[in-house]
């Protein structure tokens, strides 16, 4: 083939790739447009404050009630509990891996932890339902083991690999010179880790936390199976809750097409989308700041 032939081939390939990239972006944009088109009509019949701050979710009652406040609180509560657990476990594991574990252990452990992320959520949910819930009922004497704490714990299992992996990368990226300087100044290894390495990797760890939480708030199967599904404001960590994804997943199949309930569920999807977007934006911001400060 002549040089011109190669050049033409190159152009084709470039165009095809651009086309494919354009397609995926286009479809994502369409999905978003669809989400808003199907969600916004609910406000034609319902005042936004009644929707966002209403306390009753009775979509099939006559007359129906579409208050999603308990659902929002449920989602945030579950995310908070899982966030606290996952950040604690994930960051501590990352610190151990980079600062304490010998290199061979680290090489084996890190992929293993990342493998945990491949655990299907339905398996995690089933574990929470069949194993953890009866344990909670037996040993803590709670009314139901399907509750906020159980859901948070299961979600933490699912987000620990992400938090740990991203935090570990951040910690590993801290220049060895910083550690050496600190040790040379007479600081112990613990002091070096806690006062020098972790603060230096702080923004990376922040990104890790945000990504972990964004994973938790959108996760559906686990909360559908173990959160209990009661649309109430939780008074304790052992109360059942009904997070937003669970409500959508459970009800969408039966909601009359293009009915008020259908639109309300899409509107919940919108709220959920905005929350995840918020978490991801914060994560990105933190990551960007990190890059600038290093550069």
């Amino acid at each position: 083939m002549s040089t011109a032939g190669f050049a033409r081939k190159e152009t084709y390939i470039r165009r095809i790739l651009a086309g494919i990239a354009g397609c995926s972006l286009f479809f994502l944009a369409l999905i978003m447009l669809f989400l808003f088109m199907e969600g916004l009509p609910v406000f034609g019949r319902l005042a936004p404050p009644d929707f966002f701050f209403g306390m009753g979710w009775y979509p099939t009652q006559e007359p129906p009630e579409f208050g999603i406040f308990p659902l929002i609180v449920g989602s945030l509560a579950v995310t908070l509990v899982s966030g606290v657990l996952a950040i604690f476990l994930g960051v501590m594991t990352a610190v151990w891996l980079t600062e304490i574990a010998p290199a061979p252990v680290r090489r084996v452990c890190k992929p293993l932890i990342e493998l945990l992320a491949a655990l299907p959520s339905v398996v995690v949910g089933f574990f929470g339902m069949v194993v953890i819930a009866p344990l909670l009922q037996r040993y803590l004497d709670v009314d139901t083991g399907l509750n906020l704490f159980n859901a948070g714990l299961m979600l933490a299992f699912m987000s620990v690999p992400i938090v740990c992996s991203v935090a570990e990368d951040a910690l590993y990226g801290v220049p060895a010179t910083l550690r050496e300087a600190s040790l040379a100044l007479g600081a112990t290894r613990w002091e070096t880790t806690i006062r020098v390495v972790v603060p230096a990797a702080f923004s990376g760890i922040g990104t890790a936390c945000m990504l972990g939480m964004s994973r938790s708030i959108g996760e559906t199967m686990v909360v559908l199976m173990v959160a209990g599904g009661a649309g109430i404001l939780p008074a304790s960590i052992f109360d059942p809750v009904r997070p937003m994804p669970a409500a959508i997943a459970a009800e969408m199949a039966e909601a009359p097409f293009r009915g008020e309930h259908y639109h309300a569920l899409f509107a919940i999807g919108m709220v959920l989308f905005l929350f995840t977007l918020l978490f991801n934006t914060i994560a990105q911001r933190i990551a960007e700041k990190n890059r600038q400060s290093l550069g």
Partner: peptide
């Protein structure tokens, strides 16, 4: 109205599971 503190389960099977595990 059913009390809002009721645990809503997504299938008959899930109800059996939840009741079987809770006294």
């Amino acid at each position: 109205k059913i009390s809002p503190s009721a645990l809503l389960q997504a299938s008959n099977g899930a109800v059996v599971q939840a009741v079987a595990k809770n006294r």
